[in-house]
């Protein structure tokens, strides 16, 4: 049972070690999907918007982590 609990915790840690970062990344991809579905985003531009959004999510995650982890 201990091994199973540790396995569950490991899998949760893989995808939600930083829950806000994971949520931001999923929301970025979700917004791109909605924009594409509603024809608000041209398909040719979507990959670049998606990559830019993920870089922005990373930047926010790093900036948020740097001062917090310093203390």
């Amino acid at each position: 049972m201990g091994v199973l609990a540790a396995l569950g915790a490991e899998i949760a840690k893989m995808f939600a070690a930083d829950f806000r970062l994971s949520l931001t990344a999923v929301a970025t991809i979700g917004l791109c999907a909605v924009g594409l579905r509603l024809h608000a985003l041209p398909p040719a531009d979507l990959p670049f918007l998606l990559a830019g959004g993920i870089v922005a999510a990373l930047a926010v995650g790093v900036v948020r982590g740097a001062p917090r982890d310093r203390r």
Binding site: M14, A17, L21, A25, A66
Partner: peptide
Amino acid sequence: TVFGLGWLRKAVLRAAGA
């Protein structure tokens, strides 16, 4: 994306000394 971002963020913070 979620998994890789987690690794990348942690590696960046470790490289920065945070």
